[in-house]
Design a protein around this nucleic acid. Structure first.
Lengths: 330, 330
DNA sequence: GCATGTTTGTAGATCGGTCTTCAACGGGTG
DNA sequence: CACCCGTTGAAGACCGATCTACAAACATGC
């Protein structure tokens, strides 16, 4: 144990105590070639005795930090929990650890600061950053992006099948006889057509489904407040329309829950992500499951592959499944 | 921009390009004394041109990493959001950044791995680790602990006023005429009497209030599953008792929401933390607000103070406020 | 017995910064 | 004019690891 007052135990202390060179200790640590069983035992017991732990900073400078950075846009987003849990599961048993970097402002900053030698690789959920910029980042450090429908050269992507998922919701609502179906989504900057964000795809497919059903005139798009954050106001405003919708398809469960707060059970509501709250009897929200845990696990696994040398980009698309619950069926 | 293929831009590159020494560039970076305006301008423009960003690892090795680590027991805990947001707010405008370290297994590991030179200071929510061990940790790196009612020598603490908060809930329930009030809490290891965890205090005060009201015989304590994680089953079991409770006081909102899932509106339910979900009309949960955001902000602020040299331990106790909602009033 | 090859361990450069020490310079002062 | 001193910038040690050479010790083949 022996945690000393000021500085902590370094590799030199271990080397001295064990009567070997620093390089020898390093070899033992890294399980490198050229270590006799005798020396290994001696060094390991010394490490144990002194309570030595290698400095991450020093390691990162020369080799690797054994930390993977996961950038998350907003800590409160329920879907994140699934991603994080999946990623944690995937690195369990490896020497790697997940650290989370909450993005406050522009996502560029957070990503750059992660890339500044703190982590060996990055998993990010940044639909807003430019692809060219990302390719540049990916040249410096391995990157896996979540929720980007683009075709990158230098990084991997993990997405849900937003087309299928959205179609499933819309077909469900249409089959129930709804004609005035509104879509509640993120602010404009996240849904720019062609940008390839999940929410741009969901919006696009919503529009397509409505048009195909001959309901183009009933297309209504409401957006979450940029500032305030919640979607309660936007959903409430839908009810004030001359012809209010009978169903709301929300871009994700958090907004769907906000919608429920605004419209109660008067209007059918469907969400996306199947967060744990959706199954709660008092919420009872119809939602699209896109296997967030699996997405997180895949992302981490792909990152580990990249760290082992893979260069060609890979892509994983999670299958979706519609879970019909009370919010659309009563 | 010029992000080069392999390695990134180092301080030597900047020094060479600007025609000065590495030390000079370092001075400019750190805003250190002894830099002429001319040189500063030249170096800064070179930095800009080359897109140079200092390596965190190299910095951490000698000086500081400008990263504060926030250890969180479970990513899905709603209360965490408040803490994280508060901490982020407190470091905004400083050169420091918050990184989150999710604890998977034993919290010792996560804390140690944070202390391994990755961060300049630690905010942790680890009620289970030993105080002596924490004091040892605090000698190596500045530490602020959340939710520990102990009297440490080497670290700071931030807690809510669990006594007052719990009393407020209990008095509220009692004043409504409830006599069979059950308490839904965490597994045994988190509520060991005298351990000083928030949940041990809440349990203790619950017992005291019941006894004082002459209701000792109606004390019922149910606990969340250690493995499964949720408290639905434990709450449901309460209903199967010969004399089921008419009110449930849950140790925190997440468990209260689980309780609502199990018992619906048949039993009064009160929570703790006033997470954002509590105000939702479909949940409408009476809860104790303990200003999680303020707690997070205070914790970060205290840590910054410690980094500036403060040695004496400080303690912050957040005031609580009972918010009565529908879950106990209809 | 000697050349050759294989372990095993050490020396020392290196990563990219920080920080202390010190030399050079320029301007007052008596 | 000699002296002192504050300012500016450069040199170089240092942080704690990794990793490439390389030397020493030992085994093997002929």
């Amino acid at each position: 144990m022996s945690i000393r007052k000021g500085r902590s135990v370094t590799i030199s202390d271990v080397a001295e105590a064990a009567g070997v060179s620093r390089a020898a200790v390093s070899k033992v640590l890294r399980n490198a070639y050229g270590v006799s069983p005798g020396m290994r035992a001696r060094v390991e017991s010394t490490i144990e005795q002194l309570g030595y732990r290698p400095s991450v900073a020093a390691r990162a400078l020369r080799g690797s930090s054994y930390r993977l950075g996961l950038e998350i846009p907003y800590t409160g987003a329920r879907f994140m929990t699934q991603i994080v849990e999946g990623a944690k599961r995937a690195v369990a048993g490896t020497p790697y650890q997940i650290i989370l970097a909450p993005a406050d402002g522009p996502e560029y900053d957070t990503l750059e600061s992660l890339a500044d030698g703190l982590v060996d690789g990055i998993i990010a959920i940044s639909p807003l950053v430019d692809q060219a910029w990302l390719e540049g980042l990916a040249r410096r450090v391995p990157v896996v992006m979540l929720g980007r429908h683009d075709t990158p050269a230098g990084y991997d992507t993990v997405t849900g099948d937003d087309h299928a998922g959205t179609r499933a919701v819309m077909e469900h609502l249409l089959s129930l006889g709804h004609r005035r179906i509104a879509h509640l989504t993120e602010p404009e900057n996240v849904t720019t057509p062609g940008s390839g964000t999940p929410h741009s795809v969901r919006l696009e497919v919503y529009r397509a489904c409505m048009t195909e059903a001959g309901l183009a005139e009933h297309i209504r798009v409401a957006r979450r407040d940029v500032s305030g954050g919640d979607a309660v106001g936007a959903a409430a405003a839908l009810l004030d329309l001359p012809e209010p919708p009978t169903a709301i398809f929300a871009g994700h469960d958090d907004m769907a829950v906000d919608a429920l707060a605004a419209v109660g059970r008067t209007v059918a509501v469907a969400g996306y992500d199947n967060t744990d709250l959706a199954a709660h009897p008092l919420i009872d929200l119809t939602s699209v499951d896109q296997q967030g845990m699996e997405m997180g696990a895949q992302a981490a696994t792909m990152l580990l592959e990249r760290l082992k040398g893979r260069g060609e980009p890979r892509r994983f698309v999670a299958a979706t499944r519609l879970l019909v619950r009370g919010s659309t069926s009563r």
